[in-house]
């Protein structure tokens, strides 16, 4: 977590803040954060996409707000203040979805509220935003949100195409393809994420778990 002292809008370090979490330091497959919702909302692409956007917004803005307040937050009630910020932002996202993306709001139901306990958000607040400048924290939030969304969408695409023969609700596979119902069942997402981790670690030896 290199913090640069230079103030630049989008320098090399800032770009790295965004790209790093997508692969090498992916929150889902490497840091194992935010797995819960990654598994539950990926049976179709559309809700997964909305969820990814929601989490990215919450991570980015909670990082921003926490970073701006980081010097004034009393350390003894740090957690409560962070939770308050996150909960308020999640509530805002929930209301926005209800107003502007109602069908996704219906599909995601309680999982929107559960963004609060998505460990990515709290994890980034503790690990990054409490010690870094607002702009960098904001980018770090976007990067982690994108890393999370990336995995979510890969899984959703595979599951929707193989499990339903469709993509974003449109039929893409010819009619002789019999949809594999196993892929839309919840446990398929666990197999899939296991395989994604396997592929990623086979490609990137430094991530291999030695224990």
């Amino acid at each position: 977590m290199a913090t640069d002292t230079k103030v630049s809008v989008l320098g090399k370090n800032e770009r790295k803040l965004i790209t790093d979490p997508i692969d090498d330091n992916n929150p889902v497959t490497v840091q194992i954060l935010g797995v819960c919702s990654a598994l539950a909302v990926t049976s179709q692409v559309y809700p997964a996409l909305i969820m990814a956007i929601g989490v990215t917004l919450v991570t980015a803005f909670s990082n921003l707000v926490t970073s701006m307040l980081r010097k004034s937050i009393p350390s003894s009630i740090r957690m409560i203040v962070q939770l308050l910020i996150v909960a308020a932002l999640v509530q805002v996202v929930e209301m926005l979805l209800g107003a502007f993306a109602y069908s996704a709001y219906e599909m995601l139901s309680v999982f929107i509220g559960l963004i609060i306990t998505n460990c990515i958000v709290m994890g980034r607040l503790e690990a990054y935003a409490m010690a870094n400048k607002p702009w960098q924290s904001f980018l770090d939030g976007i990067g982690n949100g994108l890393g999370y969304g990336f995995i979510l969408i890969i899984m959703a695409v595979i599951r929707e195409i193989s499990g339903k023969g469709s993509f974003m609700g449109w039929k893409v596979l010819p009619s002789w393809y019999i949809p594999n119902n196993l892929m839309v069942l919840p446990c398929a997402s666990l197999f899939l994420i296991g395989v994604i981790i396997w592929v990623q670690r086979a490609r990137n030896q430094k991530l291999v778990d030695v224990s």
């Binding site: 308020a88 805002v92 209301m95 209800g98 107003a99 502007f100 109602y102």
Partner: peptide, 16 residues
Amino acid sequence: TALVLSFLYNVLDPIQ
């Protein structure tokens, strides 16, 4: 937070 949220709620709830 309560102020911000209640404002947004009043704006967005009718749409929802």
